[in-house]
Amino acid sequence: MTESGSPLACTRRETRKRERQERILQVAHRYFLDQGYAGTTMSAIAQTLGGSKGTLWKHFPSKDVLFAAVIDRVAQAYRARLSQLLDEQADIQTVLENVCTSLVSKVTSPDVIAVHRVVISEGGRFPELARIFSELAPRNTRAVLAAFLENAMKRGLLRKADPLDAARALMSLCMAGTHHGLLMGQIIDFDQDDIDRDAAFAVDLFLRAYAPDSRPATSI
Rank of each mutant, 00 (worst) to 15 (best):
A217C: 09
S121A: 12
L136R: 10
D162Q: 06
V107L: 12
A80H: 12
A77D: 07
L136E: 10
V104M: 02
A69R: 05
L49R: 13
K154L: 15
P7M: 14
M175S: 07
D193Q: 15
R18D: 14
V203Y: 02
T11W: 14
V95E: 02
S62P: 01
P212K: 05
E150K: 09
D72W: 13
F67G: 01
L145W: 00
M171E: 11
V112H: 04
A90C: 12
A137P: 00
S109Q: 08
R159V: 14
A90W: 08
Y78H: 07
E22S: 08
S219P: 04
F190P: 02
S102L: 14
G156P: 07
M171L: 14
V144Q: 08
R12V: 05
V104R: 00
A167C: 14
Q93V: 09
G124D: 03
Q89L: 09
H179A: 09
S83T: 06
V112C: 04
S105T: 05
Y210Q: 02
V144P: 00
V70N: 03
R18L: 11
E22L: 14
R197Q: 09
L145P: 00
G177V: 04
L173N: 02
L96K: 02
A68Y: 10
D91N: 14
A146G: 14
V65G: 11
A69L: 05
E88Q: 15
A137V: 12
D194F: 06
G5E: 12
D198Y: 07
E135P: 00
T48R: 10
D189H: 14
L207I: 10
Q26E: 15
L157P: 00
H180I: 03
G36C: 10
T2R: 15
A217Q: 15
M153K: 10
Q35L: 10
F67R: 00
G181H: 06
G123R: 06
S121D: 09
S6N: 08
H29N: 11
V95T: 05
V99Q: 01
